[in-house]
Design a protein around this nucleic acid. Structure first.
Lengths: 131, 131
DNA sequence: TGGTTGCATAACTAAATGGTAATATACGTG
DNA sequence: CACGTATATTACCATTTAGTTATGCAACCA
């Protein structure tokens, strides 16, 4: 899609589009469904209280971001997942999360340690506050 | 609405809002700036070609999602980061990324290794993507 | 006290988004 | 060919979003 830089500088427009695509529950549900395998438009539309063109639109959004690609099987246009844009978004988030958990950890850091492996000591002190 | 409930350990509305908040480059830049430390509204507004009320609006969006909180220092309302919503979004993404890299990895997985390694291999032909 | 600073709120606009119904197109089959 | 099926496209509508200008207001300061 794009030359990956070692310094992991992501195109803002691409992140806009990816996060925007993920900001809709119907589209996230479509992605969830696609994790179990390709599906046609009608198959994707079935669970939703929504018309087929609406689903086609959602698919087009996902396709434009590159989260899905489409095949051809006679009249059908099967949809399948693609990993790359999701990975970019994940890396962006990961970087921020790590960075500010390191800096602002405190209670939030404790919560995360509880659900992950307890490799670090819990923190105690709250950072400065201006009342 | 959300037929595949095994994916829904997070509140859809919250994910909508979080991803939606991240889908704007100004807001992401604000978050980036806040990683250095808390800042006032005017400090945040300064680098942007945008009026102060516009920045206030962006802050309100971030605040509503819980990505930032606000303090009080005389007339100033300092803004600072909060980690929790970002973590939810990251976890959602991570789950998907892992799942379908396991299923669809192959070439995509190779690309990721190339990115992670200091040395980069010369490019190979990429058969399944089209521009 | 009155002025200035820091921010919020209101009212408005343009553009993007998410949906609809109706129609068009592409493909396989009888 | 004609027909059904799967999907895309078009035209339209309502709502949301991202910005603006103008104004309000609380808190500090001379």
């Amino acid at each position: 899609m794009q030359p990956f830089s070692y310094t992991q500088s992501f195109s803002p427009a691409r992140l806009d589009a990816t996060f925007g695509a993920l900001a809709d529950p119907t589209r996230r549900a479509i992605l969830a469904r696609l994790m179990v395998g390709e599906a046609t438009v009608l198959e994707l539309a079935l669970p939703f209280a929504m018309t087929q063109p609406a689903i086609s639109k959602h698919i087009k959004v996902l396709e434009k971001v590159g989260l899905v690609t489409r095949g051809r099987d006679a009249q059908r246009r099967p949809v399948r997942l693609e990993a790359q844009p999701m990975r970019e978004a994940t890396e962006w988030l990961e970087r921020y999360r790590k960075h500010w958990e390191a800096n602002f950890g405190r209670l939030d850091g404790l919560l995360q340690e509880m659900e992950a492996a307890p490799e670090r000591k819990p923190r105690k002190k709250m950072p400065r506050r201006k009342p």
